[in-house]
Write a protein that binds this DNA or RNA. Structure first.
Length: 873
RNA sequence: GGGAGCAUAGCUCAGUUGGUUAGAGCACUUGCCUUACAAGCAAGGGGUCACAGGUUCGAGUCCUGUUGUUCCCACCA
């Protein structure tokens, strides 16, 4: 940076260069250092299919802020990056790709298909990490991991085997969620319910005895082919006589029992429910309770199977149409109603889920959930904001067994080998060659892979070397903060908590910082289908990563959604430009002088004031950072830089640098000192511009990112200096205000007469006040020599603006009276408050003192105003 | 059905254990190209803090209820 700097800040020229500089110097790298406390963040691994979206940008910006802050604070800060294989999402993409070539998984075969996926991963898997770099993320790339790398895969097998041996993983035939499009089972968390328009068909079943009928209502008539019972509520008087009788399923003419079960609600539908245990979770439960036959009628492509008789081979929705038609023609259909109901959809492809009975692997959840709940209850894991712990409890307390097997090829293959001789299931960390039971060597591995969230659940410790007892695990674990959106608490956060508790008997992280969604300017979710997504990379290219980061953090609080708009990014860029220009100004004034970037020994009051203010900001910002109030911290930095530092201190400095030769070196030092300090506060938020500027002034160390964070120093707090300067500012503001009100144009230079209170020292600031109020000269302690003046009563002085034009006396008198009136009212309020015994005795002292001060000030003001009015008369 | 969030200036949002006259950005009005910045500076207008009660010396903030709105969980076939 030099004097030839352009007027406008251009991030493009700077950001890439600086990131390289950081990386080449190894500033992101962390290694075990027992002299320091560790601070660790495990990056939520983005999918290898992904491109960076605003959600990632927000998530990673927050993490980067935290890790940069802690690094500067002296922690051994480690942020481990990585990517997720995202089994289902990636497999879907690769299938689409090969389909374009006329290929399919089947024709390619498992091995060849996986080759394609790995190739795909090599090709696209680095896109997102490249993009995260552009954001400025200071993660330790030398430790980058992938959920399917050797270490993570070993962790997965270890976890699986241990859990199997403890009986916490089992294989069983249960009802699961099946996606006919992805052709795999899904966990409950992977099903999204969406309200949709449907029909409610009322159908009558013939009773076996006599010629009566019983009427049921269903939204899925095609499952009728698999009905194995009708059920009524035991307390339903209407149907009491039917319990134990039999009915005949229409079209297939199967005899089924009529049973009682309290699951049936009397008031819904007809009060009679057809029970299809193979294709409905609730019916499955009922079936278990009553030992009902299970008849599967739909296959894994959602096509009616061999049990469906003449409907065999039809798609489930085609079959539905046919069946309804046939029911109608045979007189079984009574009525069709429109109904709104929730339909489960696949979270990846939005296909309607088919509940289906199927042999799958499960994690037994209840024994794992309890300790995981306790970790949060005991405060070992804290959610920020706290309300998300409720959501977590609610889910954990009601969690059902987790279906972990997927009928996919891309992922961790289930470490189970089946003996073809004796049927034994051999679960093992290593490939099994010989059956442990019968010694046969005819074995084959389970074809299925594991839920992608199974490996994600181990992420924070698998990336530190688990299951080995590594020094890393010892030093960096538990990690400190997990940063993520509320949308994956169930998928991921809760599963990391219970698996860490189970395997390491520790919490995986101490804090979970939850952020909301980034929405568009209208508050809509950004989505591909709406086409309203804003590409963070485009924003970076146009405005810089610093501006993007600022826009994402400012005005936002933990857990709340935010809107992203052009307005916001524009004002962020404006701020970067502001800092750039402040630095430019300082360079113009300090370059070539023998500058020292440190606190000066003999500061003037103005320096005492700005340093005292800076010191206060250091404290406030640090406090906010520790409390994860990033938006608050950033706002305070912004306000300080723009208002106090630029608009006041720099403005003061301009004038003083011209006049006060004695102090000029002090001023220069202070300009650089305060700017450097406040840049440090800002650095976690806007890493690039802060480093560029900071390094351009005298500094210790290679980069601001490895400098130490400013610390609050009580000795620097100077209330007297603050009061004095506040007084000066008040006078200047008041004069400018009056001038503006009276339309005294800027090129008119009136004379000011100032009578200051004892100790106000306003004469010291003559030049400053004169310049900043556009005045001709200031005469102290004398009344104006003309009659044409306006009066200002400030807390530390009385000021008269004397003009060479005639003042409208009436108007001025009127204004003074008005001001007197409002001052009197305020005074009255203060007086009343102090007369209130309850207030005086119950309110804390500082509040009362404040009122007393206000009262004193107003009393003085009223007197002064009254005097002025008298003079006018 | 259960739970949670939100409701503050025209718009987007802050407002941290209750503290007196509620803030910012953008937009708006007026005046300034004042040698860092017109992506700027100065001054200004604009809010019965959704509504109704309550607790308190004091409520945007705490409690109860109401309305509107968004979301999560459950899944009544």
């Amino acid at each position: 940076m030099n004097k030839e700097l352009p007027k406008v800040y251009d991030p493009e020229k700077i950001e890439e260069k600086i990131y390289k500089f950081w990386e080449e110097n190894g500033f992101f790298k962390s290694s075990i250092n027992h002299e320091r406390k560790s601070y660790t963040i495990a990056m939520p691994p983005p999918n290898i299919t992904g491109k960076l979206h605003m959600g990632h940008a927000l998530d990673n910006t927050i993490q980067d802020i935290l890790v940069r802050f802690k690094r500067m604070k002296g922690y051994e800060a480690l942020w481990i990056p990585g990517t997720d294989h995202a089994s289902i999402a990636t497999e879907v993409k690769v299938v689409q790709q090969i389909e374009k070539e006329g290929l399919s998984k089947k024709t390619l075969g498992r091995e060849k298909f996986l080759e394609r996926v790995w190739k795909w991963k090599e090709e696209y898997g680095n896109t997102i990490t490249r993009q995260i770099r552009k954001l400025g993320a200071s993660c330790d790339w030398s430790r980058q991991r992938f959920t399917m790398d050797k270490g993570c895969s070993r962790a997965v097998n270890e976890f699986f085997v241990r859990m199997y041996e403890k009986g916490l993983i089992y294989k069983g035939e249960r009802i699961i969620n099946w996606c006919p499009n992805c052709k795999t089972s899904l966990s409950d968390a992977e099903v999204e319910f969406k309200e949709s328009e449907g029909k409610f068909w009322r159908i009558r079943y013939r009773l076996c005895e006599g010629d009566g009928f019983v009427e049921i209502a269903t939204t899925r008539p095609e499952t009728l082919l698999g009905d194995t019972a009708l059920a009524v509520n035991p307390d339903d008087e209407r149907y009491k006589n039917l319990i134990g009788k039999k009915a005949i399923v229409p079209l297939v003419n199967r005899e089924i029992p009529i049973i009682e079960d309290s699951y049936v609600e009397k008031d819904f539908g007809t009060g009679v429910v057809k029970i299809t245990p193979a294709h409905d979770p609730n019916d499955f439960e009922v079936g278990m309770r009553h030992n009902l036959e299970i008849i599967k009628v739909i296959n894994d492509r959602a096509i009616m199977n061999e049990n469906a008789g003449k409907y065999r081979g039809l798609d489930r929705y085609k079959a539905r149409k046919e069946i309804v038609k046939d029911l109608e023609s045979e007189g079984y259909l009574i009525k069709v109603e429109d109904i709104k109901h929730n339909v489960g959809k696949c979270y990846r492809c939005s296909e309607d889920i088919e509940p289906m009975i199927s042999m799958q692997w499960f994690v037994k959840m209840p024994p794992l959930a309890q300790p995981a709940i306790k970790l949060v209850k005991d405060g070992k894991v804290k959610f920020i904001p706290d309300r998300f712990s409720k959501i977590y409890y609610n889910w954990m307390e009601n969690v059902k067994d987790w279906c972990i097997s997927r009928q996919l090829w891309w992922g961790h293959r289930i470490p189970a080998w089946y003996c073809e001789e004796c049927g034994e299931i051999n679960v093992s960390r290593e490939e099994v060659k010989v059956c442990s039971k019968c010694g046969s060597d005819k074995l084959h591995q389970d074809e299925d892979t594991l839920d992608t969230w199974f490996s994600a659940a181990l992420w924070p410790f698998s990336i530190l070397g688990w299951p080995d007892k590594t020094p890393e695990l010892d030093y960096y674990y538990p990690t400190d903060t997990l940063v993520t959106g509320y949308d994956i608490i169930f998928f991921w956060v809760s599963r990391m908590i219970f698996s860490s508790k189970e395997l390491l008997d520790k919490e995986p992280f101490k804090n979970v910082l939850i952020h909301g969604l980034v929405r568009d300017a209208q508050g809509r979710k950004m989505s591909k289908s709406l086409g309203n997504g804003i590409d963070p990379i485009e924003v970076i290219d146009k405005y810089g990563a610093d501006a993007l980061r600022f826009a994402l953090i400012t005005g936002n609080t933990p857990g709340n959604d935010m809107r992203f708009s052009d307005e916001k990014i524009l004002s962020s860029r404006g701020f970067a430009n502001k800092i750039w220009n402040a630095a430019r100004f300082i360079h113009m004034n300090v370059d070539g002088t023998n500058l020292e970037n440190k606190l000066c020994r003999d500061p003037d009051t103005i320096e005492k004031w700005i340093i005292s203010r800076y010191n206060t900001i250091v404290k406030k910002v640090s406090d906010d950072m520790e409390k994860f109030e990033l938006g608050g911290a950033l706002q305070k930095i912004y306000d300080f830089i723009w208002d106090e530092f630029c608009d006041w201190y720099i403005e003061f400095s301009k004038i003083r640098l011209q006049k006060e030769e004695d102090y000029s070196q002090t001023i220069r030092n202070t300009l650089v000192y305060v700017l450097s300090g406040v840049l440090k506060l800002l650095h976690p938020f806007m890493p690039y511009i802060t480093d560029e500027i900071w390094c351009s002034f005298p500094h210790d160390g290679k980069s601001i990112m490895v400098s130490s964070y400013p610390h609050y120093d009580e000795k620097l707090s100077d209330k007297a200096a603050e009061t004095e300067i506040l007084g000066v500012m008040e006078v200047i503001r008041a004069v400018r205000n009056r001038r503006s009100e009276m339309n005294i144009s800027a090129n008119k230079r009136p004379t000011l007469y100032i009578t200051s209170e004892a100790g106000a020292n306003l004469d010291k600031y003559e030049e400053i006040i004169k310049t900043l109020t556009f005045s001709n000269k200031i005469i102290f302690d004398r009344l104006p020599s003309t009659d044409d003046f306006v009066t200002i009563v400030a807390s530390c002085a009385k000021v008269y603006i004397a003009t060479d034009e005639l003042i409208d006396k009436k108007e001025e008198l009127c204004r003074l009276k008005k001001e007197l009136e409002s001052s009197k009212n305020s005074l009255e309020r203060s007086k009343q408050q102090l007369l209130n015994q309850d207030f005086v005795s119950k309110a804390p002292k500082n509040v009362v003192d404040k009122v007393i001060d206000t009262k004193k000030r107003l009393e003085k003001k009223v007197i002064e105003l009254q005097k002025s009015i008298d003079v006018f008369k």
